[in-house]
């Protein structure tokens, strides 16, 4: 067989083409900003942009975890339900009054949320790796489980943080700022920086990309594919927990509808950001950019009156399809 030739024709992924795919989301973001300006000049005001980015924090942070799972060749549909489940349990824990001191209680509550997120992720990971069930089905199952448990915990209603003092103490985590930069924005960038470091600089990150790129090559190279994948789901769970940490102080309550369709938005952000859905390529900053794009599209729709804001779900659905088409064209060149 003509080895060299088939490869260049089948896998024309030279470094230049990849760069195109990497730049694309940032170009799209820039175009959107220009478009937003023409739709409504108020759009580019610092206040509005800060606001928009702050609101994108939940999806951005969850999508960082999704970048891990997807680049390892997996998929996690349960993240939206997981947000509701983890947030509900966190509030219930803080309502339990187990710890008297509000500050200690808040710290403990946060740790509980992180532990729960990691545990939910671990469950997803073990079901797909040890249980050898397709990630799509496995996380579709846990999506139902986490959602159902939340509905049951809240008995169909809502779960609200009751302690006033605790509410006041917790509020700044979403509404506060440091030198004018809202805390959620700081959390986005710190989490992304950490995620980028681990993915691009560490042995685990390299193994993750290898597993997503070609599971067999990874196995034949002595990498434990199951362990690498499972950890990716745990990272996803932790990211969900971090998103919960800034979500709870925003409303102080959860319900059975918390986080509905967030998995769609998170996966869209990842794909818009240039991460390959078949695994092997992870783009952390692209994902952050993708999350911004999603929120900005919604914001422009709101400000412009061109399109009904009720169509936002449809638009987001369309974006993921367009992003896939663009990605494929860029890669095919």
């Amino acid at each position: 067989m003509n080895a060299a030739v088939t490869d260049t024709s089948k896998a024309p992924k030279t470094s230049k083409d990849w760069d195109m795919a990497a730049i694309a989301p940032f170009v799209a973001l820039a175009l959107l900003l220009v478009l937003g300006y023409f739709a409504n000049p108020n759009f580019v005001s610092l206040a509005n942009l800060t606001n928009v980015i702050t609101r994108s924090a939940f999806i951005a942070i969850i999508a960082l975890g999704a970048t891990y799972v997807i680049s390892s060749g997996g998929l996690d549909l349960s993240v939206g339900s997981m947000v509701a489940f983890v947030a509900s349990l966190m509030i219930m824990f803080m309502n339990s009054g187990a710890i008297a001191d509000p500050m200690m209680m808040l710290v403990a509550g946060m740790l509980v949320a992180l532990a729960l997120g990691a545990a939910c992720g671990l469950a997803n990971g073990l079901i797909t790796t040890v249980g050898k069930i397709e990630p799509f089905i496995a996380t579709l199952g846990t999506m139902g489980i986490y959602r159902g448990l939340t509905t049951w915990l809240s008995q169909g209603g809502s779960i609200t943080l009751r302690d006033r003092e605790l509410q006041q103490l917790y509020r700044p985590v979403y509404f506060g700022d440091v030198f004018g930069v809202p805390i959620p924005i700081i959390v986005i960038f710190v989490t992304a920086a950490l995620a980028a470091f681990v993915l691009y600089r560490t042995r685990y990150g390299r193994h993750l990309i290898a597993v997503g790129s070609n599971e067999e090559v990874a196995r034949y190279s002595g990498i434990s594919v199951q362990r690498v994948r499972t950890i990716a789901y745990v990272v996803q769970g932790l990211c969900v927990a971090v998103a919960v940490l800034i979500y709870v102080p925003r409303l102080g309550s959860t319900s059975a509808t918390t986080g509905i369709l967030w998995e769609l938005q998170a996966i869209t952000a990842v794909v818009v950001g240039g991460t390959a859905l078949r695994g092997g390529v992870g783009r952390i900053w692209g994902t952050v950019c993708g999350a911004f794009i999603l929120e900005i599209v919604g914001n422009i729709m709101l400000l412009s009156n061109f399109v009904s804001e009720y169509l936002i779900g449809a638009i987001q659905g369309a974006i993921i399809i367009i992003a896939m088409l663009v990605q494929r064209t860029l890669m095919r060149k």
């Binding site: 490869d7 896998a11 290898a210 070609n214 067999e216 090559v217 196995r219 034949y220 092997g280």
Partner: peptide, 11 residues
């Protein structure tokens, strides 16, 4: 199977 199991062709 160098291509399938030996090397990451896209890396």
């Amino acid at each position: 199977d160098r291509k399938g199991k030996g090397l990451l062709l896209t890396k």
